[in-house]
Write a protein that binds this DNA or RNA. Sequence first.
DNA 1: GCCAACGTTGGC
DNA 2: GCCAACGTTGGC
Length: 135
Amino acid sequence: MNYWLMKSEPDVFSYDDLVEKGKAEWDGVRNHAAQLNMKAMRKGDLSIFYHSNIGVEAVGVMEIVEEAAPDSTDDSGKWIAVHVAPKEKLPKPVTLKTMKADPALSGMVILRQSRLSVSPLTEAEFRHIVALSKA
DNA sequence: GCCAACGTTGGC
DNA sequence: GCCAACGTTGGC
């Protein structure tokens, strides 16, 4: 089981939008590093849903329900997407500020590479973020 | 294959 | 609106 963090601008697609749809294709990723991460995802993996630009915080947990397949929004056939479903809305969002200030999360990939839209988390980092939201 | 120019993302 | 980080493009 692996853990991930995926970013979306909430005015384009928010966690609540995902809850409403029940299941969605995580499409439009056009960055090779992010694509490699999505290819490594397995059914049942869990991911933090993070709102970029507006909110700038972790808001929910989702589950990978379908592994990498051609991105339906891509005509070239080069890019893949996964399918995700909502798992748990975090009781309290965990802001980037909080994550940056927490020594337990200092190794998070996203803190070093802020532009990477799909990044891995360790199990400890994942659990820590969920715990912070319930504190 | 290198590197400058330029575009995009994302935080502030 | 600004700027840093970083990916892409194109000339050489």
